[in-house]
Nucleic acid binder design. Sequence first.
DNA 1: GTGCTCTTGCCACTATCTTGCAATAGATCC
DNA 2: GGATCTATTGCAAGATAGTGGCAAGAGCAC
Lengths: 152, 152
Amino acid sequence: MTTSETERVNAAVQRLRRAGLRNTAARRGVLDQLAHAVGGRGHLSVSELHHALLARGVVVELSTVHRVLRQLVELGIAHTVPVGRTTTFGLADDIHHHAVCGTCGDMRQLPAEAVAASVAAARAVGIDTDQSGHPNGVVVYGRCVRCRTTDR
Amino acid sequence: MTTSETERVNAAVQRLRRAGLRNTAARRGVLDQLAHAVGGRGHLSVSELHHALLARGVVVELSTVHRVLRQLVELGIAHTVPVGRTTTFGLADDIHHHAVCGTCGDMRQLPAEAVAASVAAARAVGIDTDQSGHPNGVVVYGRCVRCRTTDR
DNA sequence: GTGCTCTTGCCACTATCTTGCAATAGATCC
DNA sequence: GGATCTATTGCAAGATAGTGGCAAGAGCAC
């Protein structure tokens, strides 16, 4: 884990503590994994996260991972992006939006400037994205180059 | 059902026929319902659609509704918008994108112009939205006025 | 009307996520 | 360090959403 990842995890733990939540192994593990994933290919599904934790020797129940993630989302520490039938999670410590391949689930970040017009249009019809603790943000669903060329 | 709804259903049935698919009661029922819903509050979940069909006397299995919808999406006749853990469906006969309340699932349409910059940004990172038969389009997740004021 | 074959109903199954409850483990105070 | 309080977790059962196989039935072409 890089220094920056450690810092982001620590910042998230501080927010948990301020919310009156305890600093448990399960929560640290989930945060570590999310911080690591955001640096990598992007967000993680619950089962990916669970497997990664077990592989690292952090023994937690799947139901616990679900509960931890729900809390992180409620606190605005993590955010969700639905991909097909599953939900993926990422840290929400920098404002970013997503482009998702609906076929393979590959995900890229989009800068806030690029989606500003979409956000404004949504607000104009009554949907506000500045709502911590709720799923929010812009998601562009499409297909990645690889899935297009291999016709998946 | 208005004249315009009937026309849209007929157009969709023509597309089915051209794809070599039969004009069955289940498919007509689903298309009717989708055409009606798009005129109303927006998209429908599978179970909403199923209940609406049964209420209208169109007796179909839930699994059939799933199968019909999957085919409609594959043909580009319908499109999907994930809302929380469920998927909602709408007719795709006009190009539009969506703003969704992540709390209550309320949905508004966004014009293509408003989301053009987001689509371009996604393409720049390799995600292309012009892919019929695949989930695509821009979705802005946020909260609607009602859920914000009632703090749901 | 006949016949071919696509569709559907039925049922079992998988995957994802939630919930209740008892046991466990953080955090605080002394 | 030890006692205590209570949030958190593991465990197990169950809810919800969607899929797949197969035989019976229904569209469509002729």
